[in-house]
Design a protein around this nucleic acid. Structure first.
Lengths: 146, 146
DNA sequence: TTTGTTTAGTTGCATAAACAACTGTATGCC
DNA sequence: GGCATACAGTTGTTTATGCAACTAAACAAA
């Protein structure tokens, strides 16, 4: 049991997600300062759509690790902001295909720049090698629990 | 600028805290299954009090990375559950010294066992060396942003 | 003393989350 | 076809969260 050796107390930062909470808040603040009026939750949905436009809501649930009602409401709000649009699928009429609008697309570059800046603030003093390992760990955790 | 080299897309898991969200949910579920009726938020407060009883609410804010109203309400609820007790400080009458009750103390062992089990589920396949590095990274992020 | 500032904690309000129950569509089996 | 089941998405309710405004005590300067 290799994982039983490290001390309980030290593991706290893993469990509570202090670090990721901190990043999310900083990102929120930086968006606001840049005059971009979206929440980090909305950003996380847009992020996936920028990568792969045309996902359905269930895909977004899986990608963002959120439940269906949350995605329904996030998409509601993004639609109100005219950043995405629901299109009924012709193959399967149960599904909504979520498409980025022109306005949504225009936010991409600026948002990504802010995200990168935020990340650089957060990761100051961390080497690329350490980041690689941390990413692997987080990915494994995610895979183990999903 | 060593941190500008890694690719944007790969950094997503850092920003959204998917992994820590996943751990928190699994922990919640495991508490529930064990018949322990506390939330992970409540657990995170208890965790710090088990380590160092007699913190005030501001200390708990810093330790848990939550704001004052959140701690006020978490302590309200923990008091209702009779797991902690507010004692007015005699040195500084603005402060509440939060003390673990007998009942709160009794939960410690079982909760820690569940937390460890959850963590072992989450970290299956991850080596101690990797965990050490991930912890360092998270701590640095936290320190950079706080 | 008194006046202003900082700090600890609380309350109110608007928003978001988790969970369960629901609608409507698709799929599989007889 | 007819029926049961599974799946995509929505709605409702309860509870938690974030932000701002507030109270009260401590501290500091005059």
């Amino acid at each position: 049991m290799p994982n039983n050796q490290f001390k309980k107390g030290e593991l706290y930062s893993f469990m509570t997600g202090k670090a990721s909470t901190a990043i999310a808040r900083r990102l929120q603040k930086n968006f606001k300062q840049a005059g971009i009026d979206i929440t980090v939750e909305q950003w996380s949905v847009l992020y996936h759509l920028w990568k792969a436009d045309g996902m359905n809501q269930q895909d977004l649930c899986n990608a963002t690790f959120r439940d269906k009602p949350s995605i329904t409401r996030l998409v509601d709000n993004l639609e109100k902001l005219a950043l995405v649009k629901r299109n009924a699928s012709k193959q399967d009429r149960r599904m909504n295909i979520i498409a980025i609008t022109e306005e949504g697309r225009e936010l991409e570059e600026k948002c990504m720049e802010i995200a990168n800046t935020t990340l650089n603030e957060a990761l100051e003093g961390v080497t690329n090698g350490q980041i690689e390992i941390a990413k692997e760990v987080l990915q494994t955790v995610y895979d183990n629990l999903k």
